[in-house]
């Protein structure tokens, strides 16, 4: 079984020029975790996902790689400050926040490979054409589980 047989061929996408606020609103409205971002030729450029939002809200000290602070229990919550961060980012283009770490899969990728990627905590997977890099669709864990049910 390959990704081709189960992928969503008509996922919601946003262009590179979309703002952070606009993409954020789509995630909230559709209650989805990620959005593929494509350029004017339909070529996949990256995923905008919840991780990008968490990165905006967390202190830099929690994102220093292996030596990050692993605990923020001592930091007081400041809802206003976090709200302000979201507001400040609202007009910036979504391309500034893209998660380049999300590696796309292809239509002929075995589903087992997709399961392995989900096991490694990756979110929805973009499916792109091997040659043109155009976005063909996305695969979420739910589509795999639905197919196996």
């Amino acid at each position: 079984m390959t990704v081709d047989s189960i992928m969503n061929r008509n996922p919601k996408t946003v262009p590179m020029t979309e703002t952070f606020g606009g993409a954020f609103a789509i995630l909230m409205d559709l209650r989805i975790d990620s959005l593929p971002v494509v350029d004017t030729n339909g070529i996949y450029r990256g995923m905008f996902d919840l991780e990008d939002i968490w990165e905006l809200l967390l202190p830099r000290a929690a994102m220093l790689g292996l030596k990050s602070l692993t605990d923020l229990a001592f930091v007081s919550d400041a809802k206003e400050a976090m709200h302000q961060k979201l507001q400040d980012a609202g007009a910036r283009p979504v391309s500034e926040f893209l998660d380049a770490q999300v590696q796309p899969v292809h239509a002929d990728t075995p589903v087992k490979e997709a399961i392995l990627l989900f096991y490694k905590h990756q979110g929805d997977l973009p499916v792109v054409d091997r040659a043109s890099k155009r976005l063909l669709g996305t695969v979420s864990p739910w589509e795999i589980l639905q197919a196996l049910r």
Binding site: P59, L69, V75
Partner: peptide, 11 residues
């Protein structure tokens, strides 16, 4: 010490 310093200066 540095990660805490970065946190404090950010705040």
């Amino acid at each position: 010490v540095v990660p805490v310093t970065i946190l404090i200066t950010e705040e």
